[in-house]
Design a protein around this nucleic acid. Structure first.
Length: 468
RNA sequence: GGCGUGGUGCCCAAGUGGUCUAAGGGAGUGGUCUGCAAAACCAUUAUUCACCGGUUCGAAUCCGGUCCACGCCUCCA
């Protein structure tokens, strides 16, 4: 079954044709570890997780690289402000980042190269660019990439450099570069860098931001690879610069498919570090939301569409996931003997097909979730009819497990909550009252239990107590 | 100024030339069940897809124009 992606390079939905059959190599722009990542960052990481899981669902072997930017203006600035060594400072946020990924059930990438551990590769790449005449050393000692030497510059962002207004806030006089748009490959050391410096053929200094992605993707994925992902705002200039560096140095196509994820908004406003209106995962965990609930919210909007994040949506996610949980509990309780009826097999297969087609069609999550909800509804209906066999219930649960390899939001083996003895006693007293048709007492006890956080549910064949 | 995205029911949202009198979720309403609830299920809520014009046997889907909202061009996923 073919898989399709919307390729930003051509602004079209295209069939995915990997360089090597059955394998997908992807590179993802990772975090700059100078602070805790916020929920908007995680929107992107969850999109990339969905992408790799969708590829795997369709049988691809995935090799993903995600870089960690642990040296740049911000990490240097903030580590100095904190009075810490750079590596000690970034270590804290690296660890926090991996912990957050775990909470959100983001599958780990195959490689997480850190910029500071690949200085040698970056210098090597800059050497090639210098050798081929694409880069030059300016009077300030920095090495710049000369955009004028790379005519294809702007092909991803569809920017024609001739027509660009010189940025309103750029003071051209401050720069030693030949052209304002030229970007730094290597930054010569200055006092603000403190003790952060590496030796290079061009004097001591540190790499520019863009060069790390080109150098590290080349090392782990090759000169040309299948998929490059990132946030829409990284498209220009960062990804454009990556293309320029890599294609100038290697003389071949850098990436075949570019996938960009839209922004996350909070209550209708753009969220960003500079605006300061952001939630970290910690903030939301403190409010009592689980990783699965947040994952459900971040997963639910198609990646190319702006996602409006609200706490209301998180509350809703809890209720929705509870609906599934209730179904799983019901299915696990089925004991009827018997085979799996043909119609059940057909029903399950139909929903599986819808799900697979949807997730393979540029990650159409809405349609994929529709399939999941359709299975929920049909399963409930079958359960209610009372004819469901244990084998059928297991087949349905197996299908949810299959969906869960992509979604990873369900607990497929939920357990009934432990009910404290005093709560149980009250519930039993209520049943007694109901039996005697003393509904006033029964309802009073039900209200009292509700105040204590427990809910009594009467079923045709009994009753149960569950937490609110 | 340049580049780009989007406007689908009360809300979120899929669908991008015929099976669309438009999927799915939320909310509402009616019903089955229940002592009453809850849960679950059933029914119901867009002859219509921002607006105007065009192409076509046929358009939410293509083309042109208008209006509105938003993003990037500057560190940011």
């Amino acid at each position: 079954m073919p898989v399709y992606f919307f390729n930003t390079m051509n602004r079209r939905r295209e069939e995915f044709k990997p360089l090597k059959d059955g394998e997908a190599k992807m590179y993802t722009c990772g975090p700059t570890v100078y602070n805790y990542a916020h929920i908007g960052n995680f929107r992107a990481y969850i999109f990339e997780d969905l992408l790799r899981r969708a590829l795997k669902y369709h049988g691809y072997k995935v090799t993903q690289v995600m870089n960690l930017t642990d040296v740049d203006d911000k990490t240097i600035r903030d580590s100095q402000a904190a009075g810490k060594e750079l590596t000690d400072y970034t270590k804290v946020y690296k660890e926090a980042f991996f912990n957050d990924l775990k909470v959100l059930k983001v599958d780990p990438a195959e490689h997480y190269p850190a910029a500071t551990e690949h200085i040698k590769e970056m210098i090597g790449l800059i050497k090639i660019l210098m050798g081929k005449g694409f880069a030059y050393q300016a009077e300030d000692g920095c090495i710049y990439f000369s955009i004028a030497k790379f005519p294809a510059y702007g092909k991803l962002a569809k920017i024609d450099m001739e027509n660009q207004q010189a940025g309103v806030r750029i003071n051209t006089d401050e720069y030693a570069k030949d052209s304002v748009a030229d970007f730094a490959l290597w930054k010569a050391w200055d006092e603000a860098d403190g003790n952060i410096a590496w030796d290079s053929p061009w004097g001591k200094g540190r790499p520019g931001w863009h060069i790390e992605c080109s150098a590290m993707s080349m090392k782990y994925l090759g000169k040309t690879f299948d998929i490059h992902t990132g946030g829409i705002d990284n498209m220009f200039p960062h990804h454009e610069d990556e293309i320029a560096q890599s294609e100038a140095a290697n003389g071949c196509t850098y990436v075949n498919y570019w996938l960009h994820c839209a922004h996350l908004m909070v209550d209708g406003d753009k969220m960003s570090k500079s605006l300061g209106n952001f939630y970290t995962l910690r903030d939301l965990e403190e409010k009592g939301y689980s990783g699965e609930e947040l994952r459900w919210v971040l997963l639910g909007t198609h990646y190319r569409k702006k996602l409006n994040f609200t706490l209301d949506a998180c509350d809703q996610a809890r209720i929705t996931l509870m609906r599934f949980r209730e179904l799983f509990l019901k299915l696990l309780s089925v004991e009827n003997e018997g085979d799996v009826r043909e119609e059940i097999t057909t029903m399950i297969a139909g929903h599986k097909k819808q799900f697979g087609d949807a997730i393979g069609d540029d990650l159409n999550i809405s349609d994929a979730l529709a399939a999941v909800f359709n299975l929920l509804r049909d399963s409930n209906r079958e359960f209610d009819s009372g004819s469901l066999t244990k084998a059928e219930a297991e087949a349905i649960l197996a299908q949810f497990a299959d969906f869960n390899t992509v979604l990873d939001v369900f607990d497929l083996e939920p357990e009934e909550a432990e009910v404290p003895a005093d709560i149980m006693t009250m519930a039993e007293k209520r049943q007694e009252a109901r039996k005697n048709r003393d509904f006033a007492t029964a309802d009073a006890l039900r209200d009292e239990l509700k105040d204590k956080g427990w809910f009594i549910e009467d079923n045709p064949d009994g009753w149960r107590v569950k937490p609110l």
